[in-house]
Structure formats: structure tokens, C-alpha cells
Amino acid sequence: MYLVTVVGNLLLLLIRLDSRLHTPMYFFLTVLSFVDLCYANSIVPQMLAHLLSAQKSIPFHSCVLQLYASLALGGSEFFLLGAMAYDRYVAVCHPLHYTVIMHGGLCLGLAAGCLVAGLINSLMETIITFRLPLCHNIINHFACETLAVLQLACVDISLNMVMVAISGFLVIMLPCSLVLFSYGHIVVAILRIRSTQGRSKAFGTCASHLTVVSTCFGATIFTYLGPRSASSMKEEKMIALFYAVVAPMLNPVIYSLRNRDVMAALWKVLEKFRVKE
């Protein structure tokens, strides 16, 4: 699964070599693939090493770096999904002004803003988490994840849990609200289209993104904003495993299978490499 994730996301990055796909939608798609690739590499290699070793340990500084990287990349992905929803909203609701509104400067600004927002949120949460005195050094998780690290603290973590909830609201619910707002207008616009073919084409431009949004937001909302229970840590590990391994693997598959332009571009790029060989 890890190899499929790496190969799939690297192939999606190659579509930037096709000049026909130098559009905002595919620009955001390649940025998303880059973030997914980095996110998987921040967690999965260490997890695979632990599966093969008897001594399952990680240095403290590596644990801090892993938590920071995973939070930063995960947060950036949520903001990117919100930006991609806005892109689809403009494409469906304002098609005649699409190229004017979604110009290169705005796309670069949105992508950079998403990455910076993820980095800042992660920095604050990582500092707050590791400032706590830790009484234990055995993490009940396959990675250095916020809630698992907080369980090692010697002091009351109520304030930290509040901060996690606030961070979750900002990083998850704000992009989710933008997605709901965008798709609410998109649905209204699609229903106004009289021809069945026109409706199908309009919906087809959003189907892949909507599928990815459902898997990513659904899993994370359940983990961080759902009710706590005695078995919640076990459930959180399963959801975290899905988000670290399955979601980055599925994203390129979903976009490739549901988009003929992506498949055509991939075949074209691969043919170029064959010719060079």
C-alpha cells in the first residue's frame, strides 16, 4: 500500500509536464499529491521499521518532528481541499469568468496560504504538547500523534484538550464550511441546467473532489471532534491508520479513474519516457 501511495502520487505530479493540464484544478491536484506524498512519508516508513524490529523506539527529537510534520501536512491538506472546492465553485457557477478569477497569482497565493496556515497551526500545537512534563515514554500508538502523546503527561491536560478542540475547529470545520458553501451553490447551479448532458458534465468536474473530501473530512471529524469513550484510543488508531495509509493511496486512484484528462496525460508522459529510453 505504501508503494502504491508513492508511485500513484508521483505519477500525478508528472501531469504538470503536460501543458494541456496547466489549469487551476490540476495545479491544486498536484499540490495535493505532493502534500499526500510528504504526509505518508512522515509516518509510514517509521511504522514499517517498527513492524520489522523487536525494539520499537523513536528518539525524542524524531517524535517531535514527526508530530509537527504530520500536523502541518494534515492541516495543509484540509485547507487545500477547501481551496479546491472554491475552484470548483467558480468553474461551475461562473464559467465565463473562470480564467479571470482563478488566475495564476491567486492559485499560488491560495496554495501558499494553505501550506503556511498548516505550518503555523502545527507549530503552536506541537509547542503546547511538548511543553508538558512527560512521566512515561511508551506511546499507545503507531506514531507520535497529539492525543497519544498527551496521555504521557504527568499533569492535567484539560487545557490541552480544549486547545486540540479549538485547533480542530479551525483546521477542520472552517475548510469544511467552505466546502459546504461551495457545493451548496454548485448543486443549485447544476439543478438550473436543463440538459441532462450538461448536468452530468458539471457534476463530473466535482465528483472526484467530493469523494476525496468525504473520506478525509469524515475520518478526521470522527477522530478529533467526536464523543470520547473508553475505547476511543483504539478507534483513533484505526482512523489514524486509515488517514496515514489508505487516504493518500486512494486520492490519486480516485482522481485518475474518474478523470480521462488525467489518464491521457499520464499515458502521454509515460510514452515520452519510453521514447527517451
Results as ranks from 00 to 15, higher is better:
residue 92 V to T: 13
residue 113 G to L: 07
residue 101 I to N: 02
residue 133 P to S: 05
residue 94 H to T: 00
residue 112 A to D: 06
residue 155 V to M: 08
residue 124 M to T: 13
residue 77 E to K: 12
residue 153 A to V: 06
residue 71 L to Q: 14
residue 113 G to R: 07
residue 97 H to W: 10
residue 151 Q to H: 14
residue 150 L to D: 12
residue 109 G to N: 10
residue 74 G to F: 04
residue 137 N to M: 10
residue 81 L to G: 02
residue 82 G to E: 10
residue 78 F to V: 01
residue 150 L to H: 10
residue 132 L to A: 09
residue 97 H to Q: 14
residue 127 I to T: 12
residue 151 Q to Y: 10
residue 143 A to D: 03
residue 97 H to E: 15
residue 77 E to V: 00
residue 87 D to W: 01
residue 126 T to P: 06
residue 133 P to N: 04
residue 93 C to G: 01
residue 76 S to A: 15
residue 135 C to T: 14
residue 96 L to G: 12
residue 80 L to V: 05
residue 116 V to F: 15
residue 147 L to P: 00
residue 121 N to L: 13
residue 122 S to V: 04
residue 107 C to K: 09
residue 88 R to K: 12
residue 111 A to S: 15
residue 94 H to G: 02
residue 90 V to M: 04
residue 145 E to G: 01
residue 140 N to S: 09
residue 136 H to S: 15
residue 153 A to E: 00
residue 131 R to V: 06
residue 99 T to D: 15
residue 81 L to I: 08
residue 97 H to S: 14
residue 74 G to N: 08
residue 118 G to V: 08
residue 96 L to Y: 11
residue 131 R to F: 08
residue 75 G to T: 05
residue 137 N to G: 12
residue 77 E to D: 00
residue 102 M to S: 01
residue 147 L to F: 12
residue 110 L to R: 08
residue 103 H to M: 00
residue 146 T to F: 00
residue 133 P to G: 05
residue 123 L to D: 06
residue 115 L to I: 14
residue 136 H to I: 05
residue 88 R to E: 02
residue 136 H to W: 11
residue 120 I to Y: 11
residue 86 Y to E: 07
residue 139 I to W: 07
residue 144 C to V: 03
residue 139 I to L: 15
residue 72 A to C: 09
residue 96 L to I: 03
residue 147 L to K: 11
residue 113 G to K: 06
residue 92 V to I: 15
residue 138 I to A: 12
residue 130 F to A: 08
residue 80 L to R: 08
residue 142 F to A: 03
residue 99 T to H: 15
residue 116 V to T: 12
residue 124 M to A: 12
residue 150 L to C: 11
residue 74 G to Y: 03
residue 88 R to Y: 04
residue 119 L to C: 10
residue 129 T to D: 05
residue 131 R to E: 13
residue 72 A to R: 02
residue 121 N to Y: 08
residue 106 L to Q: 01
residue 147 L to M: 12
residue 81 L to A: 03
residue 123 L to G: 07
residue 109 G to C: 09
residue 146 T to I: 13
residue 143 A to K: 12
residue 141 H to Q: 04
residue 97 H to G: 00
residue 79 F to Q: 02
residue 110 L to P: 07
residue 130 F to K: 04
residue 146 T to H: 09
residue 90 V to F: 03
residue 75 G to W: 04
residue 107 C to G: 08
residue 106 L to T: 01
residue 152 L to E: 02
residue 150 L to N: 12
residue 103 H to A: 06
residue 145 E to A: 07
residue 104 G to H: 07
residue 121 N to D: 14
residue 112 A to H: 05
residue 112 A to S: 14
residue 94 H to S: 05
residue 75 G to R: 04
residue 74 G to V: 08
residue 108 L to S: 11
residue 81 L to E: 03
residue 108 L to K: 14
residue 105 G to S: 04
residue 154 C to S: 14
residue 122 S to H: 04
residue 90 V to R: 06
residue 136 H to V: 09
